[in-house]
């Protein structure tokens, strides 16, 4: 038996995985299966977007995490022996993928940013970043099935095709997970998506106080851009939402202009701005690594330099 499987938390991610899944399934001459547990109505939608088969998992009680499905998914994979399983690289997806891979005794390429089918038409070469983005590693899986988790926006969403047919199969309900969800606290503010912004002003730990973000905002405003941040600003200080965190564990941006304020330029951050056209940095430390990653740097105190820049850009 064979096949390509895709597993994601929601429709948006599923459509992206359907794009690469369809491509692989077609070249490998096999069937594309999508798993679905959220809105069961989406089965036909997924079929029209490229799936040949839908495996429906029964809805879970409110207090159950999707991890409860792991034994059912792993059992079915053992029976059907797919060639490859692709999962969305989300918080829940990453944990589920690692646990399913363990049950299947197979390898998993985490945060896979590119997949290529080898000349044998079977082996998939998967690419990922290591050492914080210092290097690119290519791996193949020597055991069946090959598995990968794929970050959001790696592939375009699949387009709808009229007249596609597919099968829908139901999988058994899982036993309850020992992990119970007591409360879900939804996120308070929806943050901006800056991944497509033309100008990004990014703040790092060189900013001393939360109020001083106003300075960076003013600069962004003067340039008609958006603000982003490094991980310590979002994750440790909680000054900005984590959707604005740029880097290997955050988002990647590709603006025409990036200006980093008080950012040391550790590789984990710089990896997220690799595709920026022009990179600028303001830092007091002339030896800060950010200057080696920048086109134009200003060695200086951001509290002195930024007001001058705002003035200059206004005119």
């Amino acid at each position: 038996m064979a096949g390509a499987w895709i597993i994601a938390d929601n429709r948006e991610q599923t459509l992206e995985l359907l794009t690469i899944g369809r491509e692989l399934a077609t070249t490998m001459g096999t069937k594309l299966t999508a798993l679905l547990w959220q809105d069961q109505e989406l089965a036909d939608d997924y079929i029209s977007h490229g799936a040949d088969e839908i495996l429906l998992l029964p809805p879970l009680p409110e207090d159950q995490p999707p991890g409860a499905y792991i034994p059912v998914i792993a059992d079915e994979a053992q029976k059907k022996d797919p060639d490859i399983i692709l999962m969305a690289s989300t918080v829940r997806g990453k944990e589920m993928a690692a646990r399913i891979a363990t049950r299947l005794n197979t390898g998993l390429c985490s945060n896979c940013i590119a997949l290529n089918l080898g000349e044998d038409g079977k082996t998939v070469e998967m690419e990922r970043l290591v050492f914080g983005g210092t290097a690119v590693q290519k791996v193949t899986c020597t055991v069946r099935p090959a598995m990968a988790t794929i970050p959001l926006k790696t592939f375009e969403p699949a387009v709808k095709q009229e007249g596609r047919q597919g099968d829908i199969r139901e999988l058994p309900a899982p036993a309850p997970s020992p992990v119970k969800i007591l409360e879900r606290k939804p996120r308070e503010t929806e943050a901006k998506d800056i991944s497509e912004s033309r100008i990004v002003v990014c703040v790092g730990r060189g900013i001393e106080k939360e109020e001083d973000l106003a300075l960076a905002r003013k600069l962004a405003h003067a340039l008609g851009g958006e603000i982003g941040c490094t991980r310590p600003i979002s994750e440790e200080n909680h000054w900005l939402p984590e959707e604005l965190c740029i880097g290997i564990s955050g988002i990647s941006v590709k603006p025409d202009l990036y200006i980093g304020l008080g950012i040391s330029g550790q590789v984990q951050h710089v990896t997220g701005i690799r595709d920026a056209k022009v990179i600028c940095a303001v830092n007091t430390d002339e030896n800060a690594p950010i200057f080696a990653a920048a086109d134009y740097g200003i060695v200086g105190n951001l509290y002195d330099v930024v007001p001058k820049l705002i003035e200059a850009f206004k005119t």
């Binding site: 690119v136 290519k138 020597t142 990896t271 920048a294 134009y296």
Partner: peptide, 19 residues
């Protein structure tokens, strides 16, 4: 279960002009 087929340094060529 995995085999590394390549490991290369990610490159980034920048101007590195300092003011």
């Amino acid at each position: 279960t995995l085999q590394t087929t390549a490991m290369t340094a990610a490159s980034m060529e920048r101007r590195c002009v300092k003011f």
